[in-house]
Design a protein around this nucleic acid. Sequence first.
DNA 1: CGACACATGTAACACGTTACATGATTTG
DNA 2: CAAATCATGTAACGTGTTACATGTGTCG
Lengths: 199, 199
Amino acid sequence: MSIKHSLLVLLGEGDRYGYELRQEFEGRTGGVWPLNVGQVYTTLERLERDGLVTREESDGGRQVRYRLADVGRTEVEQWWSSPVPVQKVGRDDVALKIALAASTPGVDVLAVIHAQRRAVMTSLQDLNRAKRTGSDEAWELVADALIFRAEAEVRWLDHTEARLAQRTPVTASGTRGALQTPGASAPDAVPATGEGVQR
Amino acid sequence: MSIKHSLLVLLGEGDRYGYELRQEFEGRTGGVWPLNVGQVYTTLERLERDGLVTREESDGGRQVRYRLADVGRTEVEQWWSSPVPVQKVGRDDVALKIALAASTPGVDVLAVIHAQRRAVMTSLQDLNRAKRTGSDEAWELVADALIFRAEAEVRWLDHTEARLAQRTPVTASGTRGALQTPGASAPDAVPATGEGVQR
DNA sequence: CGACACATGTAACACGTTACATGATTTG
DNA sequence: CAAATCATGTAACGTGTTACATGTGTCG
């Protein structure tokens, strides 16, 4: 959904050809989102098929310029004015995994949580380190988004661990022993304002 | 990646047939993740093709029982012991959109941010309301994950808005006027510990 | 010349999603 | 009986991803 619209946005600024679109895209996003060239072409094909863009060969057939059609222009405007749909359904891989782990006998939920947190915090370090290096504005925006999200995930993992730790430890027959860290207290209402991210 | 492993996990507790798997899955996840039955069957096909499960008809051909193969069992164990890969690359639809908006002339970034925040906060309300209703443990886990993530997104939107507001407003020729909310101060270091989510 | 950037494409696959088709069995 | 539930599947599409194929132009 996003590549399609991104290309449309770029085409909104003027006619472009595939190769060019890819370069601009990576420039705009600070290279955070590496885009395979092939994908640009296939996406453009679909866009043309759906009548959002028109194609015309130029430079004696060496380049294939694309132009934003009216339908496409409308599409872009709608995209700008409507928010990215929030995942109401709950397609969250991590949450699903933990929920599954919590309800599966013989699985060490705490260990799963620990492993996950370790991974998230590592990537968090990487992100913060990389953020200091790169100076691109777009890059920093995206990096911050990832950082905020990662921090939220850590907070959620803490929250969940605390909650699971205080439940009746019936299914205590784990595969291997997990470090039983107590975790912060779990506020019952809105779980925001977690402050302990660093460990 | 998750449905596949979820089915494998369920099969780890004993032989199951498709219909049954779907019911158990929805039960375990508190129904948060509605799973189309057809998808269970196609997924099972792939799993069988890849040798992770074996199939055998039972009940006179009325049911098709699946059994976890050794390869599948290994796969499950690996899944439990390895974290869900953190999105290092930055496939973040919202961040991409905002970054694009910020670098596209004639687009009102603030308006885009506002629309997004409005949507997120609405879903946040829904989630909190629904959380009070449902009492399932799995459901609450997943709901919390979504809540934490949504809050992080709001915080990031605030953060980004503040940052964009203080940059030289050269491209001030927006499509329509946006409410110029000042937003919180932007801490330069780690942007965690945002506390003002409610508006 | 050889390597590299430019430029376009095809093929195949993975995963998810929706919709439709088809029967058997239970139950009001 | 009719409707709902049980149970299995197929077809088609959307989006993303990787890998490969092919040719031109430029520059050291």
